[in-house]
Nucleic acid binder design. Sequence first.
DNA 1: GTCAATTTTTTTGTATACAAAACAGGTTGG
DNA 2: CCAACCTGTTTTGTATACAAAAAAATTGAC
Lengths: 226, 226
Amino acid sequence: MAANTFHKLRDEIENGIVTGAFEPGARLDEAQLAARFGVSRTPIREALMQLSAIGLVEVRPRRGAIVVDPGPDRIFEMFEVMAELESMAGALAARRHTEQDKAAILDSHARCERSAASEDSDSYYYDNEVFHYAIYAASHSGFLAEQCAALHRRLRPYRRLQLRVRNRMKVSLSEHAAIVEAILAGDAETARSRLRSHVAVQGDRFSDLVSSLSQRQSTGTGGQPR
Amino acid sequence: MAANTFHKLRDEIENGIVTGAFEPGARLDEAQLAARFGVSRTPIREALMQLSAIGLVEVRPRRGAIVVDPGPDRIFEMFEVMAELESMAGALAARRHTEQDKAAILDSHARCERSAASEDSDSYYYDNEVFHYAIYAASHSGFLAEQCAALHRRLRPYRRLQLRVRNRMKVSLSEHAAIVEAILAGDAETARSRLRSHVAVQGDRFSDLVSSLSQRQSTGTGGQPR
DNA sequence: GTCAATTTTTTTGTATACAAAACAGGTTGG
DNA sequence: CCAACCTGTTTTGTATACAAAAAAATTGAC
């Protein structure tokens, strides 16, 4: 991949936000970031501009950039849209998947099973990501795949929190199995509805999400400043 | 709205791309743009960075920025996703719309009717946009509304081409009426399916789109350079 | 001692300067 | 005659400089 300074900086900062190194609401001081990465302010600004276009940071004119802090309601909305896009990808995948796609889906699913068996939450988290990307790819819609991937990245921190919830890993895995079955059977509508409920944050999971968010708020130094 | 130079430039250039002033594939020379807008290269670059994050321009390292030229297949994919998101907005609107939303939808629909009656294609184009935005708003999902609006903007030029097709305005209007009916009746699934087929580029419309695209390619100075 | 106004300091926004990479054209060798 | 190479030019990428605005701090009045 093309590797200019601002490009790398963009990924670094995005990663910092997504992993929580830069907490929601935190100020992103240009000079400070420049010093930290050993570059001038120019590429830092360019990186921040890109992140603001994506919606990860908010640049307030003359008042600096901050990491956006989507409230629980907005995070819920994002999951809602994610569910719709993913279920669309699943439906398309059911109709369009090739032998290669099938192999990739089965392989990533098998990895998930192994990680779940060894109860390795971090490993499962990664394999789960690969599984979902395999479905995006199988949709054979480049644009949809990109949109899904972008949203998936943005929701990363919240999904990670969710996986901590009791038994979620096992439940997730059995849902995966049902999704795989529907896709490989070519049953678009079943794949759609199963993926929708797999991704959506419904019922108990919403309160789990909210509580994990408020937990983080209180421990972190971020949140609403001033 | 906040109005810094780079912010205004971003909108200017975006508008230029969307209206076709900057054609797909065209090189966006930084110095040239800077001279044109009477500013230095710095805010131009920041604007281009944002546009590249959105996906409107492609910045190739050390090789300058060009207006992205999505092929017919990719444009089709974008309409496909747009249809899904809009139909989702419609379904939510059916369940969640308030009296205000209802008024806004009916009002914009009435405007569409008038424009269609006077066969004013440009006016209809604008009113149609307001109508769709009213539905986004009625979904009461801020994130979904933003996503819809963003995609809507990106597909603007192609939708405009489509409206030129024989009788499309009348057909579009009657579809609108059916959509309004479903939303106001609170019938989420009917609203969803009607919006989906309203937005999607199916059957004949796809070949119409492709032919209008190739027409533009041949007349314009853009296209694949070198 | 508190609050308001003014000054100081910090920080953002834009312009300019400079280095390095890509491009174009001509030249030399086969 | 064609191809590879070298050189001059253009253009991008990053650093620095400077102006203007916002934040912070100090002073002064009550």
